[in-house]
Write a protein that binds this DNA or RNA. Sequence first.
DNA 1: TTGTACGCGTTATCAG
DNA 2: CTGATAACGCGTACAA
Lengths: 356, 356
Amino acid sequence: MSDATFDDVLRIASPEADSQAEHGPVRIEEVARLAQVSPITVSRALRRPQMVSAVRRERIMKAVEETGYSSNPHAKALKSGRSDIVAAFVSNILSEQFSLAIEGLSDVLEAAGFQVALGRTSYSYGRETTLIRSLTAIRPAAVFITGVMELESNRTFLRNMGIPIVESWALARDPIDMLVGFSNADGARMVAEHFAAKGYRKVAFIGRSGGRGMLRLNSFTKSCEQLGLKLCRRISRDTVSGIPEGRQAMQDLIGEGSDVDAVFCASDLLAIGALLEARGRGLDVPGDIAIAGFGDSTLAEEIMPGLTTIAADTRKLGAVAGQMLLDRLQETQPEETQAGHAIRNIPLRLIERGST
Amino acid sequence: MSDATFDDVLRIASPEADSQAEHGPVRIEEVARLAQVSPITVSRALRRPQMVSAVRRERIMKAVEETGYSSNPHAKALKSGRSDIVAAFVSNILSEQFSLAIEGLSDVLEAAGFQVALGRTSYSYGRETTLIRSLTAIRPAAVFITGVMELESNRTFLRNMGIPIVESWALARDPIDMLVGFSNADGARMVAEHFAAKGYRKVAFIGRSGGRGMLRLNSFTKSCEQLGLKLCRRISRDTVSGIPEGRQAMQDLIGEGSDVDAVFCASDLLAIGALLEARGRGLDVPGDIAIAGFGDSTLAEEIMPGLTTIAADTRKLGAVAGQMLLDRLQETQPEETQAGHAIRNIPLRLIERGST
DNA sequence: TTGTACGCGTTATCAG
DNA sequence: CTGATAACGCGTACAA
């Protein structure tokens, strides 16, 4: 312990001393005794109120209130073979867009009594596989993935668990189960069309070489051809894409002395890095070079001169995913709970700002 | 479903068909049968290997391998009255610093077989209280908080759970249990000293009015007095502090026609908003006005002309917290597991960049 | 509508 | 060192 100064921290006293935690957790039996019924009746009163007479139900509810009873989720999970946990796989929790999706998801699910457990795959198949295998033990009620599961073995494994699954972030043709995504291809096309409309002719692409970066590049390439744009340069890296990588890529581009008009960056962070580098070297954006991104991060609006980008409402995406899972979890006829291959599309829009 | 273009998504086939999930989870009994021992011996072989003879232990381990057995965490939790879940309370998952702390925490804990469950308090006492109460049901093994619990009732509740708890992000004098923090007061003083050393004399403060914002303001105020700096203006808001709020605050400051030299913003995002606004209005930073932040976000380094800021290694903070929890969880004599009031200090340093 | 008996998978206890 | 027995708290199946 160094001699650092201690902070004086706010403390807020509360009148009622809450000694509830002292006596350990309340069991259903205690509630039953208080309400003068059997434990199973308490259980029913909570799970299927209409199965219990009004008189007892009220007595029970009162006892529940008084004791602060809530059922033990582990016992419940053990009995039912299924927990109230929804597993959410995220490649990178530092991503604003993924975090927003998780917020949307957990807002919906927590309101319905489910817990969201985060698993970080860190863009690694190894970690992803490890996490997937651990699901056998946890017995989640459902699974959400910010992305599409790529390894066929993991897809099979998840499918065999027989629980609702939502993949996301792309409009894949045959999801494991359900899907809520947006069309990366459309987004890339919108950028190409925007470039064409603004009169840019010689364009470049910066992005990750795998996954969605690749999707965006493929579509961008095709659209450029159709629109008569010349795609002079593609800079792909397979590392995670942040501001420094964007800077580096732009540096490469400029260093080559290329005469590119406009650059499409497959993520906002890449685009912001590129933009900062370009301006730092005295280039005018968009005069000397136009830049567009993907994702509509907070920064896209704040940075000078404003970043043109493709926006998807990812908080909504998460909320929709949560609702799809809930719908399936709360279905009355579990027999019908076959993989429905429901697909929901989240529309994209291009937001034009100063950078193009 | 609109007519959006379907993306072609990468699929990676894998040679070995893994049919493990088909047959439902493997139970300890199956392993026992395979190894020709009783279930309890399997349990012991896994939890206390030295209690089982080498011969059987090997047979058992082989059977575990073959079946892919892993113990059911719900049954374990039910039996032991304690789960392998560590609850982590975060006020805002969109914060880069908090996310890094969570990464550090879960890297350490997951390696030791614990699961980290995130609870978002959203800077709301109500949500915090709700989450705290829900812990009774979940029976976490331990609790981590990115911040200091302020409500006395919640502090009591947590203390009474009798599990290891780590608060963080400030050097509070009497933590509920353990603490790993940095001195917000020191950080603010470092900024004041830096301003003084650079010759700035008329300074301002922008920050949140509660919690750590207040800590930083108090210390900054005192340091300014001691150093002969004139603290002309304090702009406090009680909302979450992002780039837009920083912009707004700087706008207020400039609008008043004040002749402030330098501004200390209690968070990097506020500082970046302020910086963008100042430059957007044609002010030179630091010529016309110097700006310093707190947190050392990625952006601080990237933005022009570089943001002077107070850096704390929050990933390390999370890792240290995880280790403190682990040490307590793995203590052999549970009798000694009294609230130790261990306090660890994470040093701060001022990073000077172009903005001052 | 209500209650009894039992089992979910694991591990502590105690006897061997 | 090993195994039989019981119990963790809840909810399903069945009986009343």
